[in-house]
């Protein structure tokens, strides 16, 4: 079983409601939620996969009822406590005293440089590249983390156990299934894999349509 976030292909959500170009935030507090989350991440207490997993492991009830930035806030609060940056008492009651900024606190003068620096996911790897463009591959039968029960993975359930073809190799990228649980980078080849809509859906809209997913080599086997 996967979690609530793994919603590709799901029925029942109703139409997509487009918004005018230029609308960035629906409420003022959304801006603060975005900014506080990015600023707190600058302490380096978690990586992007740890933070994604923190959102995914919100309870199904919370995941369903929280709006987008409420999920971010909830995951941030949980991560701050797990990282011992704040205590449960402080979350409930506020800070007991004012403290000076710590060395890793992101200051305004460093914002532009930090956002521009990014955080590449490519890493050197000894894992040999097994697949090449046009090779037929089959995805893992069960969309689950094989290292950690209930752990983070980036193989969506709708694309589990299907046959596709390699479009390209993106080089070697760290493996989220490992890094989300602080088990190391475990870098391996990452591929763009095209899967035909007729392979994925019982009622595809068009026989020539397809979905492309970026999938790690360990998610794949020759087909």
């Amino acid at each position: 079983m996967t979690r609530m976030h793994d919603m590709g292909g799901r029925y029942g959500d109703g139409p997509v409601i487009p918004e005018p170009e230029g609308v960035l935030f629906d409420a003022e507090w959304h801006k603060r939620a975005l900014a506080v989350t990015l600023a707190a991440g600058a302490h380096g207490a978690w990586n992007i996969d740890v933070s994604r997993h923190a959102r995914e492991r919100l309870s199904p009830a919370d995941y369903g009822r929280f709006s987008y930035y409420e999920k971010w806030m909830a995951a941030l609060a949980d991560l701050l406590v797990e990282a011992d940056l704040v205590s449960r008492t402080e979350l409930a009651e506020g800070a007991q005293a004012d403290a000076a900024p710590v060395p890793t606190t992101l200051t305004a003068d460093r914002v532009a440089a930090v956002l521009a620096a990014g955080g590449p996911a490519t890493r050197p790897s000894d894992v040999p590249q097994l697949f090449h463009a046009c090779d037929a591959v089959r995805t893992r039968k069960i969309a689950a983390n094989v290292l950690v029960d209930g752990g983070h993975t980036r193989l969506p359930a709708y694309a589990a156990g299907v046959t596709g073809r390699i479009l390209r190799c993106h080089g070697t990228h760290l493996l989220p299934d490992s890094s989300a649980h602080r088990l190391g980078d475990a870098a391996e080849p990452l591929y763009a894999v095209a899967v035909r809509a007729v392979e994925l859906w019982s009622h595809p809209e068009h026989p020539e349509d397809e979905v492309v997913l970026d999938l790690w080599q360990s998610y794949l086997e020759p087909a």
Partner: peptide, 16 residues
Amino acid sequence: LLTRKGLVDPAALDAI
């Protein structure tokens, strides 16, 4: 809370 603990600089939030 994060501002009082010195973990967030409000000016950095505005810059983001």
